[in-house]
Simulated scan of single mutants.
Amino acid sequence: MKTLFDIPTAPLVPVRGETAGYPVHRIFGVGRNYAEHAAEMGYEVDRETPFYFTKPASAIVESGSEIPYPPGTSNFHYEMELVVAIGAPAFRVSVEDASKAIYGYAAGLDMTRRDLQLAERANQRPWSLGKAFEQSAPIAQITKAAEFGEIGPQRIRLSVNDEIRQDAHLRDLVWSVPELISHLSRFYHLGPGDLIYTGTPAGVGPLQPGDRIFGEIDGLQPVSITIGAAE
């Protein structure tokens, strides 16, 4: 059957050491996965079960880009995150086997229209307007899992205009990467092309046009963006 119209192809994320890119199918975000960030948002961590939100593939932005200050918000926030790239099918996998599905890791940003997110939260509505919008998931190149090693001691930090705003360690994750993959795989057939943004440390805050954001995770390519004029 022919299509009625053309739609964008899957965005590609560069991979260290490869000429081919990683095509993005879906993006899952993890909420409140650092205890101090949950506290600054007015919540205690739910240690019984993780929870998630999603972003469209159109949220992907290559590191080094300028993105516009998005429409509909006056409180646009950065959130620095470890991103997990899935590289093999994973459905109802155990925590012990979950790591076999990991292709690699990247530094990423979960850009958030905070005022819209908080308004949705106050009305017990989904976070779609606050989280799921175009150019809201900047990402650096992916490093293959074998080249990154065990998750834990690496620092994760972010600066705005050369001023450090977030600084933590990956061992501070409430839910580990294997736990997240195992849990998500109870509800989705995970597979190549799926990205998991694993949550942000404390220190999130607002941005203005002209701001420069630089995020780092030890052992990974850093992610950077500049905020352009409002749309």
Rank of each mutant, 00 (worst) to 15 (best):
G108W: 01
P23E: 10
D46T: 02
R125F: 07
N161G: 09
T54F: 12
E48I: 14
L118T: 13
A101I: 05
G130F: 06
A39G: 11
E62F: 01
D162L: 04
A145G: 08
N161C: 07
A101G: 04
A107N: 13
V84W: 01
T73Y: 07
R121E: 14
V61L: 06
Y105R: 09
Y43C: 05
I139C: 11
G31C: 08
E134A: 15
S99M: 13
K100A: 13
K144E: 14
P89N: 01
N75I: 03
F148I: 03
Q141V: 02
A119Y: 07
S74F: 12
A137G: 12
N123K: 15
Y105A: 04
F76L: 09
A107R: 12
I27R: 00
T112L: 05
A137F: 12
E44V: 15
G104N: 01
R26M: 00
P126W: 06
Q135E: 10
R114N: 11
G104S: 01
Q124V: 13
R125S: 12
P71V: 05
A90S: 06
G104E: 05
E79S: 05
N33K: 08
A106N: 09
Q124K: 15
A146D: 09
F148D: 04
R121N: 07
P89R: 07
G31H: 02
F133N: 06
K100R: 09
E66R: 13
E150C: 01
T143M: 13
V160Q: 07
R125E: 13
K131M: 03
R26A: 00
P23T: 00
M41C: 05
V160S: 09
Q154E: 07
S65I: 08
D46Y: 10
S65Y: 09
N75Q: 13
A59N: 02
I142M: 02
E66N: 04
N161D: 13
A140Y: 03
H77S: 02
K144I: 01
Q135M: 12
F28V: 02
T49E: 11
E62P: 07
D97T: 12
E48R: 14
G72C: 08
N123M: 13
V84H: 02
A98T: 02
T112W: 06
A39F: 03
I164A: 10
R113W: 07
G42Y: 08
A119W: 01
F133Q: 10
E44S: 14
A39N: 14
F28K: 06
H77F: 07
F133W: 15
T49F: 13
D46H: 08
Y78D: 13
G29R: 04
Q141M: 14
A57M: 10
M41S: 09
G108N: 05
N161S: 10
A107S: 15
E66W: 08
Y43W: 11
G87W: 06
I151P: 13
A146N: 10
F148L: 09
A39M: 11
P50D: 08
A146F: 12
A106Q: 08
N161L: 04
V24M: 02
E44N: 15
D115P: 09
A146H: 10
S63Q: 09
T49C: 11
R121F: 09
